Simulated scan of single mutants.
Amino acid sequence: MVVMPISTPGFSRISSYGATSYGRIQAFCTMTMNSNSPQIQRKEEVQVQHLKTAIPQLETAGATNLHFNRLQPLDQQLVQEERIEFGQFTAREALLDEEYWTAAWLRAESHWEDQPNQRYKDNYKRKFTEQEFNALKRRCRKQDKHKCTCIVVVKKEDRSVKRTVLKSVVGTLDLSIRYLLPRETFPGERVKAPLFCSIDRTSQGRYGYIANLCVAKTARRQGIATNMLYFAVKLAKSNGAEQVFVHVHKKNIPALGLYKKMGFQVVEMATSQLSKEQTYLLCLGL
Rank of each mutant, 00 (worst) to 15 (best):
K260F: 06
T64N: 12
F128D: 04
T271V: 08
V169N: 00
T129L: 07
N34E: 14
P182D: 13
T129H: 08
N134H: 07
R163H: 08
D114G: 02
G257E: 13
Y124C: 11
M33N: 13
R42E: 15
T90F: 05
E81R: 06
V170K: 00
A219Q: 07
A211R: 09
Q76A: 06
F128Y: 15
E268K: 04
F245L: 02
R190M: 08
A232P: 05
A211N: 10
I6K: 09
G87H: 07
K162S: 10
T60G: 01
T172Q: 14
A104V: 00
K142S: 15
Y120Q: 02
I40M: 12
L180G: 02
K127V: 13
A255G: 01
H247E: 15
L213H: 01
A236S: 08
L195R: 03
V165C: 10
F231N: 05
L229R: 00
R190V: 10
L51W: 06
L213E: 02
F196E: 09
E157H: 02
K261R: 12
W112G: 00
G205C: 05
Y259Q: 02
T185F: 15
A104E: 04
Q88S: 05
S110V: 02
K155M: 14
G205W: 13
A193F: 12
L175M: 09
F28H: 01
I84S: 07
V266Y: 05
N69V: 05
I199Y: 15
A219G: 02
S7R: 02
K251M: 08
E99C: 05
T32K: 13
I151G: 02
I14W: 05
G171S: 14
R13Y: 05
L66Q: 06
V169H: 01
E268D: 14
A270C: 12
D97R: 04
A108E: 05
S16W: 09
A54L: 13
V3L: 15
Q49R: 10
K147G: 04
C150Q: 14
V161N: 04
L106P: 00
T64F: 15
S238P: 03
R183Q: 08
K250N: 08
K250C: 12
H146Y: 11
K52E: 15
Q77R: 03
G23I: 15
T8A: 11
R201S: 11
Q47D: 13
V152M: 11
Y207W: 07
P182R: 06
A63T: 06
V48L: 13
V154S: 11
W105V: 07
T20P: 03
Q273N: 08
T226I: 08
P194A: 04
Q278Y: 11
P9L: 10
D144F: 10
A193S: 10
E184Q: 11
A63H: 06
S275Q: 06
L74A: 06
V79R: 00
I55Y: 05
Q77C: 12
A241W: 14
S160D: 10
I210G: 03
K145T: 11
D174Y: 12
S275E: 14
I55R: 09
V169F: 08
S238H: 09
E93F: 11
G62K: 00
S176P: 00
L51G: 08
N117D: 14
A135P: 01
G205L: 10
A19N: 01
M228H: 03
K260D: 04
N252K: 01
S198N: 05
P187M: 08
E98F: 10
L71T: 04
D97G: 03
S198P: 01
